[in-house]
Structures are given as C-alpha cells and as structure tokens.
Amino acid sequence: MWGCRGSLAAPGPETVRYGGNTSCLEVRPSDGRLIVIDAGTGARNLGIALGKNRPDRIDILLTHLHLDHIEGLGFFGPVWDEGCEVHIWGPPSPLRTLREDIAKYFSPPLFPVHLDDLPSHLVIHDVPGGEWEIGATKIRAQPVNHPGPTVGYRLQDGDNVLTYISDHEPALGVDLRSVTPDWVSGYALAYGADVLLHDSQYTEEEYPGRVGWGHSSIAHTVSFALITKVKRLVMFHHDPLHSDAQLEAMLVRAKELWGEEPDDIVLSYEGMEIEVS
C-alpha cells in the first residue's frame, strides 16, 4: 500500500504511522503482473520503488478522477519511460471518454506536459461493462455511489478475491440495516471478498455534517462489510484531518461494531502488505 489517505495528501507528524499519501495500491497477482489501483500521491513512491525493475507492462485501475486519485499519475516514473506500456482503465463520463478527462489533468495550466507528449506507450481504456481479464486476474468494475463517474473494483485471482471501493457512500438516503442486500450500492462487488478495502472516512459524529459528500462513516463501513460477508475489512481513505491517534480511536469503535473476530478489521497504512487468501 503506497497511499491510503483520502481527499488530500496530509504529511506531517500527526500522520506518520498511517501515512499522508493519497490512494495507491500495488497488486501482485499470481502471474507476476503489476496492477496498480488508483494513482494518488502514493504512486510517486511506487514508481521510485519499481526503478529499473519495472515490468514492461503496467495496468492502472482508476476508480474515478478526483484529484486525490490521479495526482500521482504525472509523477509515476513509468509514464516517463518510453519502453513501458501503461494501460489505464477507468470510468468514462456521459459525454467524454476517459482519455479526454485524463487529458484535462495532463494539460497546462494544471500540468506542464500534454498527455500525448508522455513518452511511455499509454493505452487508455473505458472500463468494460462486464468482466475482463488482465493476465490471470479477472476484473469487474461497477458504478458505486459517489459524486461523479466512480467505480469500485473486484479482482479475482484463482479463488482469491480483493475488492476495492475507496470512495463510497452506500448509506446515502438508505438504512443499510433495513434494505435487502441487492439494493445496496457495491454489494455485488464486495460479496464474500477475502479482503475488502473500503472508504471509512468519517466518525459517526462527523457524518451528519457531510451527508452526500460520497463517503462513509465507520458505522456504515462496518454495516456494509457485514452485509457483504467479507472475510477481512481494511479501513481505507482516511480523512486528512484525522491524526494517527484519531484513526486508532476509530478502529476501536469499528471493532465494537464488528463484533466477533475483531482482528478481521484493520486500519490501512502506508507500507502495509496484505496476502489475499
């Protein structure tokens, strides 16, 4: 895990244990490929770590184009390497392709270099409606409840399933305890996953002042994980205002809500490694 902060990078002494970089995940399936999920500021360090050992092809799955999920893209070393084939997958908008939307970021005055001038071999794909494969990994993207075109991802390698829904407000206008699961945003993506990385941005006290912002309270996150019967829950997309101590207090509350097997719920942190099995 190269970044697990939400909304805005938040470096500083208050966030050293869990990290200040925004969303970026390195996934290593059984076939040895490299799949990157989201390209927040954490992507810069991933690019540095890959160095000259980078694979010839890298696939980047973007959940959406809010800046905290793409601002590391221009600083991800492999996009500057002409020998590298970088495939970017993400949701299109109703009127524009993903390429057109990414090109907005890669253009002055937001960024000094145009998308077409990046030296790597860049291939940009609108996410398909159904399942597709990257090597041995079966991938499915589905729209989830968050402002703007936003998807979550379900990655399956053999029998092992990782679900990533970084920005998600499944409880918007809904009591998760009273609706049937098939009426819950993200349900199909997360059901039965070995590991679910899920938005857990707010405390229960904060959420009422942030309804409709596209994120979950701890109580919503735990309810969603219980409804979808995931095996392990990783709290993700930490609020930039939350210190390490506040995150740890949120984990205590999440464990209370989770009930049995409290060790199955953890906080994400930079440098974290998870074996999905």
């Binding site: 379900r154 098939d182 009426w183 819950v184 993200g186 349900y187 199909a188 059901y191």
Partner: peptide, 12 residues
C-alpha cells in the same frame, strides 16, 4: 458473483 440492482435503480 451475487446479483445486485444497478446503481441507477438503487438511486431512483
């Protein structure tokens, strides 16, 4: 994979 209503139907 479990079945789920589309997000548009959920929001409607």
């Amino acid at each position: 994979m479990q079945q789920q209503k589309s997000l548009v139907l959920i929001l409607a």
